[in-house]
Design a protein around this nucleic acid. Sequence first.
DNA 1: CAGTATCCTTGCGGATACTG
DNA 2: CAGTATCCGCAAGGATACTG
Lengths: 122, 122
Amino acid sequence: MVNKAEWTTSTAIWSTRVSLARMDNKWTAMVVIALGRGARRFGELRTKVEGISAKVLTETLRSLERDGLVVRHVHAEMPPRVEYELTELGRTLHAPLQAIGRWAEEHAEEVLTARAAYDTGR
Amino acid sequence: MVNKAEWTTSTAIWSTRVSLARMDNKWTAMVVIALGRGARRFGELRTKVEGISAKVLTETLRSLERDGLVVRHVHAEMPPRVEYELTELGRTLHAPLQAIGRWAEEHAEEVLTARAAYDTGR
DNA sequence: CAGTATCCTTGCGGATACTG
DNA sequence: CAGTATCCGCAAGGATACTG
């Protein structure tokens, strides 16, 4: 969609849009990946996405809901049960994000090595 | 590489690794995308990645260099010319990141619409 | 041109306590 | 269980001025 020529002149546009992809939030990507992999309940997400606090998870889910990437299902029970689900739109984002996750898995070692070399060397 | 079963038990590992993918830095993804698309000089990146300050661009490039994703070429000239280039490793990250960028391009409208609906509705 | 050097503000997000 | 409500520290990163 964006060719070389367009790219040359429409920088402002996509810089805004990439931020729309929510790269700005530290946790968003991981929450979406977790949801795509089948985690649904609040507590489930809380443990899957290791290190996230309840407060931040709530905020993250709310903003994903606001952006139409996630739907929230509240079951009127006691104790309460709430399930989150990726929307159609959310699922389209899941694939590319998962690719990033996979990249991290596969190249973590290399990054660590490079980092150590950089720190030792100079 | 990570199947459903592994995923269930190895959460801690990949949460660390995803952060290694540098999702934490607000600008990293955009800098890598810009580099992959051919931007090379400091000033060029500065204008392509709209809104980034010189300070932050420098820091971002340094950390990418440290992680072995980018190499820095200094040309001993006056005025100085410095070119940045994705390494082999950096190029492997470029593809998935570009996919995210493309997603943002394609779905920005939907997100904006959902957001407006959410804000108006409730 | 390609950075450094400082200063300073903002807000992310951690910790903790409480509730329907 | 699934959140809210507060309080608050700290570091990301913006603004500005200067340099090899």
